[in-house]
């Protein structure tokens, strides 16, 4: 049974006694539990949220909403995390040593999420009916990601070191997606543009016919991004693309967009 644990966030822990933290609410379905009924809680509580680190250990694949709406501090998840990790977060850092389920970083506006293994569908996307997905912050996934990664992306950056499932960047309207693994089809579908770009540095299965090829060149701006990825975000393979020729496509013409897709030239 999934657990909804949006209280596992530095903002709601800081300044409290351990006994108060133990009584924070978590839910299984519509049943309310005290946090202490499902988790063993120990450690020190910081005075300021920025100094608060929460380490989550054990089998947490079905624990949802960890770090949801967090504004500062750090969460380290030693294993996997369930859906909605870091959704709507505005600051701070979440590190997941395993994988995350769907909707990680959905509608986040700031902060940093690092997933050491894979991520599910709708990474950094908008919720159904919402016009904007992620509006700031950075998500780096060291493994593969599921479908509709960066859907409705508005600002911020998503970096995927593994393979990317179909419909990456669907409806995006700004922001950047960097993919170092193979990118599946329908990338950038219905993307509007507004400075948005998708860099397919590991190749792409198929470009939509509504994207037009413009040119192959070595864009200087890409060097700036790749340098940041390589040196500041630990994406070492980025460095080898700094001088690579890239094919520039723009679209999606189906919606009058001017989004850019850059594909490493073979």
């Amino acid at each position: 049974m999934p657990i909804e644990a949006e209280n596992i966030t530095p903002d709601l822990v800081v300044g409290k006694q351990l006994s108060e933290i133990e009584r924070l609410a978590v839910y299984t379905g519509n049943r309310r539990h005290n946090l202490a009924e499902l988790f063993e809680i120990r450690g020190d509580v910081a005075d300021e949220v920025g100094n608060q680190t929460i380490v989550v250990e054990g089998e947490t694949s079905l624990v949802k909403y960890i770090g949801s709406s967090m504004s500062a501090g750090k969460i380290i998840i030693e294993g996997n995390a369930g859906m909605h990790l870091g959704s709507r977060m505005s600051g701070g850092e979440i590190q997941v040593k395993g994988s995350v389920d769907d909707w990680a970083g959905a509608e986040m506006s700031g902060g940093y999420i690092r997933v050491n293994e894979s991520a599910g569908n709708r990474l950094g996307s908008g919720y159904r009916g919402s016009p904007e997905g992620m509006t700031g912050g950075v998500i780096v996934v060291d493994g593969n990601v599921g479908q509709e990664c960066g859907a409705f992306l508005r600002r911020g950056m998503i970096v995927v070191r593994g393979a990317v499932a179909p419909f990456a960047g669907v409806h995006m309207n700004g922001g950047q997606i960097f993919a170092f693994g193979h990118v599946s089809k329908r990338v950038g579908a219905s993307a509007k543009g507004n400075g948005g770009l998708i860099a397919c540095l590991g190749g792409v299965e198929q470009m939509l016919p509504t994207y037009i090829y413009d040119s192959t060149y070595r864009p200087t701006f890409m060097r700036v991004y790749l340098q940041q990825l390589s040196e500041n975000l630990g994406v070492k393979e980025a460095a080898k693309f700094t001088d690579s020729p890239l094919e520039r496509y723009s679209g999606d013409l189906a919606c009058g967009g001017n989004n850019e897709i850059f594909v490493v030239s073979s």
């Binding site: 600051g91 700031g110 902060g111 911020g156 950056m157 700036v224 850019e260």
Partner: peptide
């Protein structure tokens, strides 16, 4: 084309 860096970070 506008290029943004460090939005929210």
């Amino acid at each position: 084309v506008k290029m943004r860096m460090n939005d929210g970070l």
